[in-house]
Design a protein around this nucleic acid. Structure first.
Length: 496
RNA sequence: UGCCCACUGGUCAAACUGGUUUAAGACGUCGCCCUCUCAAGGCGGAGUUAUGGGUUCGAGCCCCAUGUGGGUGACCA
């Protein structure tokens, strides 16, 4: 196949926000398309009108864009093979369904949902796999016609079922799984291709659209493997060539070992939520790409461009991958550290404002202060929302000093250090980290107190915490007034 | 219960179609260094081919069985 005829698609149903598993499917399709200089297409699979969510489509597309994906054709980017929403393609499906009907490869089925449920329960009770049993079994053509007429007279609306060939092997060479085959007798009987409401089902619409849109490769989740033989049958029925399939292993939850489900609360499931927490899109892209796919060398941090260049669908993993939150955080931290300063500033600033730690419209001075603050924590942030927690010392009045901290300063030298420090910083001209550092140094020189005995009392007195970032910077951020105030309180406390 | 699939350390995984692998690398974990502390960073350690058979001069890689796990069994996609 010529390279330029490669066309792949990501086909979400607009039933909610972009799930991490779907994002991964989208990314791998995207990478495959871009690597091969093919086309990447978005198609909205909205045949289940009941489940469609108002902003579902928009949210899907927005989050895809946020991740850095772009597409060549889609609902918002008309191309040669539109429309790109299945709900708008009925005029394409109708004649094809009629063709199947005319050739007796499909038929009207009047079995009601209640009857089917009863059938299935009865089958289960017998220990048989639940399946659809041909409702016209043993009838002549004449009898079938009559049965249909009777159902019609009762006001029943039919569905259309595809006639599954008997005892036939359907096999394909899966790009990731290798050779896979099914016997047609094991797939559950004649399946529905048009629902009672007249909408085609997923299995039908997907093959029509993939064919009409000239899709060359289909990369999708492992959970679609069982659909593939059904789809192969329909390709055969129409005499069409099926695309190449690649079924990617699923992302599983480390907690349950099962496919990530929207109900699993131990893992954040939606791209949007990561976005809200201040994760970086490139980091998410990187992390997701490493879930079930591995690059050739030993490195793991790559840009989108690098991934495109080295992407190789043969390196897709066959076995499911656990979602490792720790690794996500590590990757994000790598990106935070190497990101453009303005990007980090902007995102972190938003988090501070959202949490109410900064006013909605901060003035220039406040922004200047916040920039310094964010810089102090840049090294250790995995995602931006953490800034609020990490920097709480700078927003809340500290608690009483007690326990270990109190012990640390309950000695003879601490008050000396503190008094000296308070006195000297109240006199310095420019209250910044440089001056504060030299003040601390001067105390060391004049009193001979050094190391922990020198630094800890100051840290504890000013921040009321034993741990925190670089002291001089922290003190600068707290400000002279507050610093002096805190030292004063501390001195009073240890004098008692 | 049927059908399909997978199985390398706590996690992600490499090892091209069986042969310099005493099984890469990364996250995590542990230790050391740096250091006022935390983090970051640097260095180092521990830890794995599910089990049992077979094929072969040689098996993580091939075959069979067992086990475990997953997917699917919709008028959802």
């Amino acid at each position: 196949m010529a390279k330029n005829s490669i066309r792949v698609r990501y086909a979400p149903s607009p039933t909610g926000h972009l799930h991490i598993g779907n994002a991964r499917t989208a990314i791998f399709n995207y990478l495959f398309a871009r690597h091969n200089k093919g086309k990447f297409i978005i198609r909205i699979e909205d045949t289940d009108t009941k489940r469609n969510v108002a902003d579902g489509e928009k949210s899907q597309l927005d989050n895809l864009k946020w991740l850095g994906l772009d597409w060549d054709e889609g609902p918002d980017k008309p191309g040669e093979y539109g429309p790109y929403r299945q709900s708008e393609r009925k005029s394409i499906y109708t004649p094809l369904i009629q063709k199947l009907l005319d050739e007796d490869k499909a038929y009207y089925s009047y079995r009601t949902e209640e009857e089917l449920t009863a059938d299935r329960e009865e089958q289960r009770a017998r220990g048989v796999m639940p399946h659809y049993e041909y409702e016209y079994a043993g009838m002549t053509d004449e009898e079938i016609k009559q049965s249909m007429a009777e159902s019609e007279a009762k006001g029943l609306k039919p569905v259309i079922r595809f006639r599954v060939p008997k005892n036939t092997e359907y096999a394909w060479d899966d790009i990731v799984k290798g050779h896979v085959s099914f016997n047609s007798d094991t797939i559950g009987g004649d399946f529905v291709i048009v629902k009672r409401d007249g909408m085609p089902t997923y299995n039908f619409a997907v093959i029509v659209d993939d064919h009409e849109m000239k899709i060359s490769h289909v990369f999708r989740g492992d959970d679609h493997v069982a659909n593939t033989p059904k789809q192969l049958m329909m390709y055969e029925a129409f005499g069409w060539e099926a695309p190449k399939f690649g079924h990617m292993s699923l992302i599983t939850s480390a907690d349950t070992g099962k496919k990530l489900s929207k109900r699993d609360e131990s893992i954040i499931q939606f791209i949007e939520q990561y976005r809200d927490l201040g994760y970086l899109p490139d980091a998410m892209f990187n992390f997701i790409t490493l879930l079930g796919w591995s690059p050739k060398g030993e490195d793991e941090i790559f840009s989108k461009q690098q991934f495109i260049k080295m992407y190789d669908e043969n390196r897709l993993s066959k076995s499911p991958a656990n979602f490792d939150n720790k690794k996500l955080e590590w990757i994000n931290n790598q990106y935070v550290k190497s990101s453009d300063e303005d990007v980090v500033m902007d995102l972190a600033l938003r988090q501070l404002i959202a949490k109410g730690n900064l006013p909605k419209q901060p003035d220039a001075k406040t922004i200047e202060w916040a920039r310094k603050l964010i810089n102090v924590y840049k090294q250790q942030m995995s995602y931006m929302a953490q800034i609020n927690e990490m920097a709480s010392v700078f927003f809340n009045e500290p608690e009483q000093i007690d326990g270990e901290s109190l012990e640390e300063i309950n000695n003879d030298t601490a008050p000396v250090v503190l008094k000296e420090f308070a006195e000297r910083i109240s006199k310095i001209d420019i209250f910044d980290k440089v001056e504060i550092l030299s003040t601390i140094k001067s105390i060391q020189k004049d009193t001979g107190i050094k190391g922990r005995k020198l630094w800890m009392p100051i840290r504890i007195a000013v921040t009321h915490e034993m741990h925190g970032p670089e002291l001089p910077e922290s003190i600068e951020l707290i400000g002279r007034e507050k610093a002096l105030e805190h030292i004063d309180q501390t001195l009073k406390q240890i004098n008692k």
